[in-house]
Amino acid sequence: MPRTTAIATRELSKTYKDVKALDNVTLDLEPDRIYGLLGRNGAGKTTLMSILTGQNYADHGTAEIFGHAPFEHDPTLSRICFIRESQKYPDDFKVHQAFESAALFFENWDEDLAQELVEAFALPINRRIKKLSRGQLSAVGVIIGMASRADITFFDEPYLGLDAVARQIFYDRLVEDFAEYPRTIVLSSHLIDEVANLLEHVIVIDKGQIVIDSDAEELRGTAVTVTGDAAKVQEFIGAAQVLHRDALGALASVTIKAKLDADQREQAKLMGLDLSPVSLQQLVVRSALSGTTAQRTEERTEARK
C-alpha cells in the first residue's frame, strides 16, 4: 500500500497579469521527507507555497494537502505551518506573544524546543517584534516553524539576515529534530550548497515550470565536468548533453549530463582529461540556465575562433 501523499498538485497554473507564475505544475510530495524547493527569484516558489497553504488560489488545476484542498479548510490548515521570508506579525506584538499565539494554533507545539531555540539564537523575547533586527526576525520565524512540529512545514527563504553561525544552528537543529519527529519539510532556499546534504528530494522550478523533480541522491553524480585539451574533451563527450562550457585557450572545461561508469572514467584518464564532480548548486544553476546561457556561451566560443 502506498502511503498517503502529503502534497499533490495536478496541472497547477497561476498567471499574474501577463506573467505565468506557475505553468502546469504537477507534483507529488511524500510525507516525512525533507524537500528542497529551489529556483531563482520570481521562478514561482512562493506562489506555489502560497497556493499549497491556502493563502492564494490557482487559475487552473488542483492542489491537495493530505487529500484535501487547503483553501479555507481549517482541519487541513491547522496541519500546515508556512514561514514566509517576510513573515508579518501583529503590530506591537512582543516576541513571546508570537510564540504564545503559535502554541495555541499548532497542536504539536513543543514549548521546550522553542525555549531551547530562543537560547540558541539569543533572542530577546520581551522585545517588540517591530524593534527586532532582520536576523532576529528570521529567528522568530525559524523557531515557530520548528517548534510547531506541523505535519507539513514550509520554510520560504527563512534565513534572511541570519549570519553563518545562526544558519548552521538552524540546519543542525532541523536535522536533529526531524530525525526524532519526522514530518514533511519544504525548504525553499537560494543557499543550495548549505542545505544540499539535508535534502532527500529536490524540486527545481524555473519560469513557473518544474525542471527537476528528483531524489537528491540520484541527482548527485548525474553530471560531471570534463577538463583538458579542447579537441580531446570534445572527442570524449561525444553527443552528451552539454550543461555548460568554458574555454581558456586550447583548454576546455565542459559540464555534461552523464553518469560515467568505471570504464569511461578510465578512458578519460588515459586521454589525459580531468573529471570533477558537479555540486547540487552548480547542477541546479546549470539546469535552470541551460536553455539560454549554454547557447550564449557557445556563440561566444564560436565568435572567439
Binding site: R33, V175, A179, E200
Partner: peptide
Amino acid sequence: STNEFAAFYRINPATAAK
C-alpha cells in the same frame, strides 16, 4: 545510530539510514 550519523555529518537521516 542513524540519527547520530545524520546529526554529526549534517545529512538527511534517510540518507544516513540508506
